[in-house]
């Protein structure tokens, strides 16, 4: 799922007067982002079935895993390596889910709001819908109250929409038959590119993307399917640890 640019935060509004306006702005943002995101559940459903999952397994992933990057990655690795690449598929999906930990830490105080005494189920529900989009919409609001509304409205809109469109996509994929003739393998690559695109604003991210692609390609002939992607993750650890490829302005 795409992360929205953080630059569209509105300027802080006058306090007290615009409560209603804030609320409707948060809901408007949520619906716009939510519906656009939910639409591409269709491509996930179709690709998962093309990778060999059945309709139940596909829907289970959207209901329980419910984080687009990990879902696409899991079915992508299974498509290239089959069940034998299961370990790599799990590791790749899990590593892509690490960013949700960071999102959760940012969303926790917003979800809690003023009173700390929330039930465990509400916490679990909040964690369940903590994804790129719900976090991005929440962070784009100007007050905590609007952020809370944006978080829940976006999360719930996408949860419902994503699961409906996943089922539709899985049924369509099931009916297609020969997926290569329909170009679904190229569609999977384009889907990953769409998830990556909004993250390439900084030079460092671009450098990591290029290096990781080269490493994965070079490793493909020598490693089992699934492993080249994991090896490429080392690029992120090395560049991130030493903070390489940062462009500092010339003094």
């Amino acid at each position: 799922m795409n992360e929205r640019p953080e630059t569209d935060a509105r300027p802080p509004e006058e306090h007290g007067e615009n409560l209603e306006g804030e609320r409707s702005a948060a809901i408007r943002d949520s619906l716009a982002v939510g519906l656009a995101t939910a639409a591409y559940g269709i491509s996930f459903g179709a690709l998962a079935v093309a990778a060999g999952l059945d309709v139940w397994q596909t829907c289970f992933l959207s209901l329980v895993m419910f984080t687009g990057g990990s879902q696409f990655a899991l079915v992508g690795v299974l498509a290239s390596g089959g069940v034998a690449a299961g370990g790599s598929a799990i590791a790749t999906a899990a590593m892509l889910g690490i960013r949700n930990v960071v999102y959760g830490m940012r969303m926790k105080p917003i979800v809690d709001g003023a009173d700390e005494a929330h039930g465990i189920w509400r916490r679990v529900a909040a964690a369940w819908v903590t994804i790129d989009e719900s976090t991005a919409v929440a962070l784009a609001q100007s007050t905590d109250r609007a952020a809370r509304i944006g978080f829940w409205a976006t999360g719930i809109t996408i949860f419902v929409g994503w699961n409906v469109t996943t089922l539709a996509g899985a049924l369509i994929g099931d009916a297609l038959g020969d997926t290569k003739a329909w170009g679904l393998d190229a569609a999977a690559a384009a889907a990953f590119l769409g998830l990556l695109w909004p993250r390439l604003k900084r030079f460092q991210a671009g450098a990591v993307a290029v290096a990781a692609a080269i490493v994965a390609t070079l490793a493909t002939p020598v490693l089992m399917p699934g492993l080249p992607v994991l090896v490429a993750a080392v690029v992120a650890v090395v560049v991130g640890w030493f903070d390489l490829f940062t462009r500092r302005p010339a003094a």
Partner: peptide, 16 residues
């Protein structure tokens, strides 16, 4: 954590 997402997605594009 941030760059990990970028590296994994880019590697998946290359392999796919």
């Amino acid at each position: 954590a941030d760059l990990l997402t970028v590296a994994l997605l880019s590697a998946l594009i290359a392999v796919q």
